[in-house]
C-alpha cells in the first residue's frame, strides 16, 4: 500500500512536470529559447481554473476553455515582451533574464491578486476516491493526450512541419518561405495552452497556489534537461522519473533531502549523458 501511494503520487506529479517540460520544448522548437515562464503557465492554469470554476461558478467546460485561452494569451505576451526583443536586438542569451523577469512579475501579480495562501481547485468529475481519485489519474491521462496531440501536430500538419523545419534550421526555413516569426508566435501561444492545460488538470493535486509557478519552472526544466532539449519523449520519461524520485526521496530520506536527491540525479544524468537520455548529437552539414 505504501508502494502504491508513492507510485501513484509520483506518476501523477511527474505527469504535470512532463507537461511543463512539453511547454518548454514547444517554445524551444521555434526560438531556441528556454523560457522560464513555462512554470508560470502551469500556475496560471490552476489559479484561473479555480477562479473561473470555483469562484465564478462557470461550467467546467467553459472554465477549461477560458483557462486555455488565458494560457495562450500569456504565451503570446511572453513572445512579444521577453523573447522577440531579445532575439532581435541584444545578446541572445539574455533571454534567461528577460523571461525570468516576466515570470517573477506574473508570480508577484498572482500573489497580490489571488493571495499568498493555497486555495482549493474544484473537483472536476468527482470520479474515484483515495488513490483512484481523479487528482491522480487526470494529470496522467492529460499528459498522454498532450503528448499524442503534439506528436500529431508535428507530424501530421503543415504548421507542425514548419515548426520542425524552423527547429532544424531557422535560416533555411526562412529561405524556403516559412514565416519564421509568425510560427514562433504560434509556438508560444501553443506552449501557453499546453502549460495552462498542465496546471488545470494538476490543480486538484497541486492546489491553486501562486508559489507553484517557480516550483514548476524548476521541476519542469529538469525533465527537459534529463530527456534532452527539444525531445518530447525525453520530457515525458524525465518528468515521470523526477516525480517518482521526489516521492521516494521524501519518504525515505525526508522532505529536506528532496531537492538534493532530485538535483543529484539530474547532475549525474547530465554528466553521464550530456545531451540527455533522448537528445541527439547536433548534426552539421558539411
Amino acid at each position: 500500500m505504501i508502494w502504491a501511494s508513492i507510485l501513484v503520487a509520483g506518476i501523477a506529479t511527474g505527469a504535470v512536470y512532463a507537461m511543463i517540460g512539453l511547454a518548454y520544448n514547444v517554445m524551444y522548437s521555434t526560438s531556441k529559447v528556454m523560457s522560464f515562464t513555462a512554470g508560470m503557465l502551469g500556475m496560471l492554469g490552476s489559479v484561473f481554473g479555480a477562479l473561473f470554476i470555483g469562484v465564478l461558478h462557470w461550467p467546467v467546460a467553459a472554465g477549461f476553455v477560458a483557462t486555455l485561452a488565458v494560457g495562450g494569451i500569456f504565451g503570446w505576451i511572453t513572445e512579444r515582451l521577453s523573447v522577440r526583443p531579445v532575439l532581435r536586438n541584444i545578446d541572445k542569451h539574455l533571454y534567461v533574464l528577460s523571461t525570468l523577469a516576466l515570470a517573477l512579475m506574473v508570480q508577484q501579480l498572482a500573489a497580490i491578486e489571488w493571495g499568498t495562501e493555497p486555495r482549493p481547485f474544484p473537483t472536476l468529475f468527482g470520479i474515484g476516491h483515495d488513490l483512484t481519485s481523479e487528482q491522480y489519474w487526470l494529470p496522467v491521462i492529460a499528459c498522454i493526450i498532450a503528448a499524442a496531440a503534439l506528436e500529431w501536430f508535428y507530424r501530421g500538419t503543415l504548421a507542425g512541419r514548419a515548426f520542425l523545419a524552423i527547429s532544424e534550421d531557422a535560416r533555411a526555413a526562412l529561405a524556403l518561405g516559412i514565416p519564421e516569426r509568425r510560427m514562433r508566435v504560434l509556438s508560444y501561444v501553443l506552449s501557453g495552452v499546453v502549460g495552462a492545460f498542465a496546471g488545470f488538470v494538476g490543480g486538484e493535486l497541486l492546489l491553486a497556489f501562486f508559489a507553484n509557478g517557480m516550483m514548476l519552472t524548476f521541476y519542469g526544466f529538469i525533465p527537459v534537461a534529463i530527456g534532452g532539449l527539444g525531445s518530447n519523449r525525453g520530457a515525458l520519461v524525465g518528468g515521470l522519473v523526477l516525480g517518482l524520485i521526489q516521492q521516494a526521496a521524501n519518504y525515505w530520506f525526508g522532505g529536506d533531502m528532496v531537492p538534493v536527491v532530485a538535483f543529484a540525479v539530474f547532475i549525474a544524468i547530465l554528466l553521464a549523458m550530456p545531451r540527455g537520455l533522448f537528445g541527439a548529437a547536433a548534426q552539421r552539414r558539411v
Binding site: 508513492i6 493535486l205 516521492q247
Partner: peptide, 17 residues
C-alpha cells in the same frame, strides 16, 4: 518521525507508515 517537503503533493505514505 518524518520531515515532509511543504510542496509534497501527497502524504498518504507517511500516514500509512
Amino acid at each position: 518521525t518524518a520531515l515532509i517537503d511543504p510542496n509534497a503533493t501527497d502524504a498518504t505514505a507517511e500516514m500509512q507508515k
